[in-house]
Amino acid sequence: MRTAEEQIRAVLDGSVGYERGLDTLTVAPAADVDAALFTALRTASARLFGRGWQPGELHRVVGRRGTVPHTQVVADAVVAHLRGFRPALVDPRWRAQADALGATVWWKTDGAYLDGLAARWRVDRVEVLDTILVLLGILRTLPPIETLIPPPGTAPETAAPAAGSVDVRLLDRVRALLAKAESTTYPPEAETYTAKAQELVARHSIDEALLAARGATKAVVPFARRIGVDHPYETEKAALLDAVADANRCHTVWSPELGFATVFGFDTDIDAVDLLHTSLLVQANRAMSAVEPPGGKAGRARLKTFRQSFLVGFAVRIGERLAQAREEVTVAVDAGDLLPVLAARDAQVRETMDRIFPRTVRGRSTRVDSDEGWDSGRAAADRAALHHG
């Protein structure tokens, strides 16, 4: 006679069929099963947090592979994990991600967690058991990833960017400009707003680099952040992210199996990449919807190739224009020591990337099968152009 812990383990490793195992757990003593499942959930999530996964990333990848209830349980696992650590031993960036999930300890006791879920979701006990078992199976398949933020229980790294090091007022101005660019249906307006946003972040990045080089501010170091890329057409969207990153002196490593790209750079530059990429995706999708051919069963394949080619053309043209805008801002800065400073910072970023990813494979370029989509994408990128004036 297996214990509840042994039965759960047997289901997860496949030595017992899933349906048979679920039936056995359903008729077993509820107190034993509930305690064992909650312990298994905490153990599985803690193992992943110790292997590089952050709250937002785990929540997102489970959403890709599971359903909304699975993500809700992940949020609960995050807040349950945090209960075991003093606030001083939790990196502020890690806690900020946990807070963003909006999770709280709503259940009375750990042993009553599953009953609480059934009441919250208004479902029967079998559905709750099924949800937890499927989630444990998803968590079991996730590999270790690079640790970018120290997990709870370890002191925050002194080399990490200090909280508040990014100019919050600048980011608020950039967000406001990009929100206007996304909301307008008049292309010249979107161009002006987006161009101003890029100009702000480019000038701020240069000012920060010069001040740091002259010793006028506390030295900062390159960092890395994982940015999610969603279905569909994620490879093409990742290409756009890479174009935006390159124009803002960052580098990316794309992990298609996990649906995110790791962006390397200085903190302010990564913030700019994240904001611009999100805004440009909105603008690209709006422009694509306005010019794409009709879908339906007959035109489904044509529509898919059009969209893929559109996004590739958009990414390539945006990359060209962003690079041009960056050079214009650089030339406008009257500082003879700027280029060596930027070269030194780029070397630091590359060194950080090579340390975390010592072996990478250059991605294959996306095939363009629709000239109509390619031309439309480049035209849309021209309308979202970042060349100011």
Rank of each mutant, 00 (worst) to 15 (best):
V312G: 08
V229Q: 01
Y233K: 08
A347P: 08
A98K: 06
Y18W: 14
G116Q: 13
Q198K: 07
G319N: 02
A219Y: 03
V68G: 10
T109V: 05
R120D: 13
V361P: 05
L171A: 12
G377R: 02
Y193M: 03
C250Y: 09
R355S: 08
P188I: 09
A162E: 13
W94K: 06
S376V: 02
E328V: 01
A176I: 00
W53Q: 01
T366V: 15
A202Y: 09
H231F: 14
A28S: 14
R307T: 02
D267C: 05
L89I: 00
G215V: 10
I356P: 03
A301P: 03
V273N: 01
D371W: 10
V134T: 06
K297M: 14
A176F: 11
V73A: 10
V62A: 00
Q97V: 04
R364E: 12
A261W: 01
E327H: 13
G296E: 07
E372G: 01
L322F: 02
V27T: 15
D23R: 11
A238N: 12
V273Q: 00
E328N: 07
R307A: 06
P340R: 00
P358A: 08
T194V: 06
P55T: 00
L258F: 09
D115C: 08
A181Y: 06
D130G: 09
T278A: 14
E182W: 03
D274K: 12
S183Q: 14
P188G: 08
P87C: 03
V128L: 05
W374N: 11
S255P: 00
A347D: 14
G102C: 10
L117T: 05
I138G: 05
F357S: 00
D23M: 03
L12P: 00
L82G: 02
L342M: 14
A239W: 06
T235F: 11
F357P: 00
W53V: 03
G111Y: 01
R64T: 08
R93S: 12
R286S: 13
L41W: 09
P187T: 03
F85L: 01
R214F: 07
I270Q: 04
E19F: 13
T360A: 04
R60Q: 14
A112C: 04
Q97N: 04
L142M: 10
N248Q: 13
D269C: 07
K297C: 08
L338D: 05
R350V: 13
L311F: 12
V282M: 11
Q283L: 15
K297A: 13
A335L: 05
A4Y: 02
R362K: 12
G66R: 04
E327S: 13
S289T: 10
E234C: 12
E199F: 02
V79A: 13
Q198Y: 11
R364Y: 09
Y18T: 08
A209D: 04
M1G: 13
E182M: 09
E19D: 15
R125Q: 15
H251V: 15
P87H: 05
V11A: 03
A380F: 05
A112I: 07
D124L: 08
Y233G: 06
T154K: 08
R95F: 08
G389I: 11
T39V: 11
D91G: 06
V221C: 09
P256V: 00
R225E: 14
A195E: 01
T104K: 04
A112N: 10
Q72I: 12
L139T: 02
E5Q: 15
L177E: 01
L129S: 00
F264E: 04
D34T: 01
